[in-house]
C-alpha cells in the first residue's frame, strides 16, 4: 500500500495515515527475515561441521600428547612426519586405487542396472526394491558377511563350490594382500551400485519418450540412442552421483576396517583407516589430524575441479 498518492483527497490521506504502513521496523524485519530462516542451519553447520574441521586443522599443527593434551603449535612437524613415513605413500596409492576402482566400476555397473530397471517388465518394482537392499544394510554387516563368504575355513563360498563339486579342498581366496584388497573393492562396489542406479534412474525417468520415438522414426539403433540421447540427458545425474561417490568412497571406513583393519603392514589401508590407527592405536592424534587434512585437501581439489568445470559450462548443461 502506497502513501505517496499526491492527488488524494484530505480524508483519504487521513485514512491512509491511520492504515498500517511498512514502517522502518517492518522493513528491517523483511530484510532480516531470510537470515532468521537460515540461521538454524548456519548455526548447526557451524557447530557440527565447521567447528570439528577447524579443530582438526588446529590439531594437525599442534603437538598432542598421548594422553590427549595439546602442547602448543609445532608448525608443520606432524605433516613432515606423516610424509616421511614409508607407509604413507603406500596408503595414498591404496586410497587412489580404492576410490577409482570402486567409483568407476560401480558407476558403469550402476548405469547398466539403471537402464535395465528403466524398462517395463513384470516384477520391476520388486527388482528395484531388491537393488536397495545392499544400500540399506549397515556397511559393517555387509563387510562381515563378505568376510564370512570368502573365509577359507568356514566360508560359504568354499562350502558351496565343494558341494557342487567344483573344488575338492577349501581354497584360500585371500592368499595375498592384493587379493584381500580386491575383495574389499568388490564389497565396496556392491554397496555403491544402488546409489548410482537410483541417481541414474531418476535421470532416465525424466527423459521424454518422444525423443526416442523421433530417433526410432529416423532409424537410429539402440547404441545410437544410448550415446546420443540417453547419455547426454542423464549426464547431470551421473556427474552428481560420481562426485558424491568420490567423496563417500574416499572417506569410507567400515568395509576395510571390518575386513582387514588395513593389515598386513598397511597393505590394505586407505587414508581413513590409516589415520584411525594413528589416532587410536598409536596415540598420535597430531599426525592423524595431519593425514585428515591431507585427505581433505585432495577431496577439495577434486570437488573444485568438478564445480569449476560444471559452472563454466553453465547451469543448462549441468
Amino acid at each position: 500500500m502506497s502513501t505517496k498518492t499526491p492527488a488524494a483527497p484530505a480524508e483519504a490521506q487521513e485514512l491512509a495515515k491511520k492504515a498500517p504502513r511498512p514502517s522502518g521496523s517492518k522493513k528491517l524485519l523483511r530484510k532480516v527475515e531470510p537470515y532468521i530462516w537460515i540461521a538454524p542451519s548456519i548455526i548447526l553447520m557451524a557447530i557440527f561441521i565447521v567447528t570439528p574441521i577447524v579443530k582438526v586443522f588446529q590439531l594437525s599443527m599442534s603437538k598432542v600428547t598421548r594422553a590427549g593434551l595439546v602442547k602448543g603449535y609445532n608448525n608443520f612437524e606432524n605433516f613432515s612426519k606423516v610424509l616421511k613415513s614409508p607407509a604413507f605413500a603406500l596408503v595414498l596409492k591404496n586410497t587412489i586405487v580404492w576410490t577409482i576402482a570402486v567409483v568407476v566400476i560401480s558407476t558403469v555397473l550402476g548405469f547398466m542396472l539403471a537402464l535395465v530397471l528403466n524398462n517395463k517388465f513384470r516384477g520391476r518394482k520388486v527388482a528395484r526394491a531388491i537393488v536397495v537392499f545392499p544400500w540399506a544394510t549397515t556397511l559393517v554387516i555387509q563387510a562381515s558377511a563378505w568376510n564370512f563368504i570368502i573365509n577359507k575355513d568356514y566360508g560359504t563360498l568354499n562350502t558351496l563350490l565343494m558341494k557342487i563339486g567344483l573344488i575338492s579342498a577349501p581354497v584360500n581366496w585371500t592368499p595375498t594382500p592384493a587379493a584381500y584388497f580386491a575383495w574389499e573393492i568388490a564389497c565396496g562396489i556392491f554397496v555403491t551400485i544402488p546409489f548410482v542406479t537410483f541417481c541414474v534412474l531418476s535421470g532416465l525417468q525424466s527423459i521424454d519418450a518422444s525423443y526416442y520415438e523421433a530417433a526410432t522414426v529416423d532409424g537410429a539403433g539402440y547404441f545410437q540412442k544410448l550415446f546420443s540421447i540417453t547419455l547426454p540427458l542423464v549426464k547431470s545425474s551421473l556427474t552428481v552421483a560420481t562426485v558424491l561417490n568420490i567423496i563417500y568412497v574416499f572417506n569410507s571406513f567400515p568395509i576395510i576396517w571390518t575386513m582387514t583393519k588395513g593389515d598386513p603392514a598397511n597393505h590394505t589401508d586407505t587414508l581413513v583407516t590409516y589415520l584411525y590407527k594413528l589416532a587410536f592405536y598409536n596415540g598420535k592424534q597430531g599426525e592423524a589430524s595431519a593425514v585428515s587434512v591431507i585427505g581433505f585437501v585432495i577431496l577439495l581439489a577434486c570437488a573444485s575441479v568438478y564445480m569449476i568445470y560444471t559452472l563454466r559450462k553453465g547451469d543448462d548443461d549441468l
Binding site: 561441521i49 574441521i53 562426485v243 567423496i247
Partner: peptide, 16 residues
C-alpha cells in the same frame, strides 16, 4: 566446492 567437501567430509567421518 568448499561447502560441499566440508559437509560431506563431516558426513564421511561420522559414518566411519
Amino acid at each position: 566446492a568448499l561447502v560441499m567437501v566440508l559437509s560431506l567430509a563431516a558426513c564421511g567421518g561420522d559414518k566411519g
